[in-house]
Design a protein around this nucleic acid. Structure first.
Lengths: 238, 238
DNA sequence: CTAATAGTGTCTATCAGACAGTATTCT
DNA sequence: AGAATACTGTCTGATAGACACTATTAG
């Protein structure tokens, strides 16, 4: 066992990665919010080569000194780009290939993040409605496809989770929440069953009635989720 | 636009990745099968440093010359390691960090593959029951955790998909299929609702009755899936 | 009062699960 | 006949969705 460990040590001491055998790896968060009844994505305009000037995701290479894990490196990027802490995020997928980046064989891990609507501190960043993505000209690298993958994931999960709550400013009424669901799904939802579903899930806390509306005021709620997003047992929207 | 493209070309011509800024990237398939009423994982014994002698997943670096995309590189590895083509596989997650591999900051993308039980061509490969993983001593790198992630994914999806069909030798009876579900879930399932669910999903084709059993023979079925695995609208096993 | 929206009660459809009864094979 | 397992029918419970009715606010 000692010899083995010796051989191992010697091997590691001599080990040097060859840059041309390696693939280029990056992390790309797709940050969603809902504002003005539109689903929007955070994009930044690239100021460096390659593809300077194009709009793309606020991602990039992993900073090996600052992050000890992948998750950490994504958290860092989210904070840097949005200054936001209360975000939800999850991994969506990893795409890789020879043609994704002109610099060579590349791999990128896509994350989906959900944040409440908020102004952006950065100059070259914008909330872009997903319906208007094609109006920006070609996006950087394969970012158009990566956004599509994140969108798919979001739309899939919306029918059996409470994820959209992370997009709602607190406190919120069930109508506000339902509209967010509808914006994501592009589909009307039955008010009655939606409300029952949410209330009976036991994930909401009452936070007093609305005021100043010209109709019967609705109850406002805060999220009471136990860390993990709630998963329902049946799908929404037939 | 021409100047931009010129600058871009010049940049790319001069671009050389620095090996010490890059992370090490690999692909690790977790290949499952069900044999003798046990869920098993394909492991291989490493013959090279580092960690020679340990059992681990049949993964490794991407061969940039042979594969144009990540998916392709996984297909290649599956073929090399099992000689199998009719497998189902999907991406599970990507894990990365400074401590996963002694050679440095590494990232690995984990895939889950489902194959029918079959003998292995390779000398140093084994089907290991998931219950006996801890008897093999420590696995290579973080492979123990990676297997756990794939297992989680499998157990999650089994309650709302027909994935276990990919583990069944064709043709199969509903009893055989149900046993596979039960082995994965570690839980009895009601025969009646299981059978109704499967038959009414319209994913099975009748393939004649069993013969030679000392009781009423069951119908055998073949899978009729339309490429994508079927997703049910309600969960199994309350 | 009216307009507008919130909340509630009732009915239906769907489907998982439990249970009982019938069918078909071999020994 | 008896043992074993397949198949079928019926009932219950949970919940999404449709619809109608009542409640509460501003003007």
């Amino acid at each position: 066992m000692t010899t083995k460990s010796q051989a191992e040590k010697a091997y590691l001491a001599r080990y040097t990665p060859n840059a041309f055998d390696q693939v280029l790896f990056s992390v790309d968060p797709v940050i969603f919010t809902v504002e003005d009844d539109q689903l929007k994505v955070l994009l930044v305009q690239r100021d460096q080569l390659p593809q300077a000037g194009r709009w793309g995701l606020p991602g990039g290479r992993v900073d090996k000194r600052k992050a000890a894990t992948l998750e950490e490196s994504v958290s860092l990027k989210l904070e840097q780009k949005t200054g936001l802490h209360q975000a939800y995020f999850e991994q969506v997928c990893t795409e890789g290939g020879a043609d994704m980046d002109p610099r060579g064989w590349s791999v990128t891990t896509v994350y989906m993040a959900l944040v409440r609507p908020q102004p952006l501190a950065m100059e070259n960043a914008r909330w872009v409605p997903v319906e208007e993505l094609d109006g920006l000209g070609p996006l950087a690298f394969w970012h158009r496809q990566l956004i599509e993958r994140a969108l798919e994931r979001l739309r899939n999960k919306v029918v059996y989770t409470d994820l959209p709550i992370y997009l709602a400013p607190e406190p919120f009424t069930l109508r506000q929440l339902r509209v967010i669901y509808q914006v994501i799904l592009g589909q009307e939802l039955s008010r009655n069953s939606f409300n029952k579903r949410m209330v009976e899930a036991g994930i909401l806390e009452e936070a007093g009635l609305e005021t100043g509306v010209s109709n019967r005021p609705a109850m406002r709620y805060r999220y009471n989720g136990a860390g993990k997003p709630h998963e329902f047992k049946r799908l929404l929207g037939g």
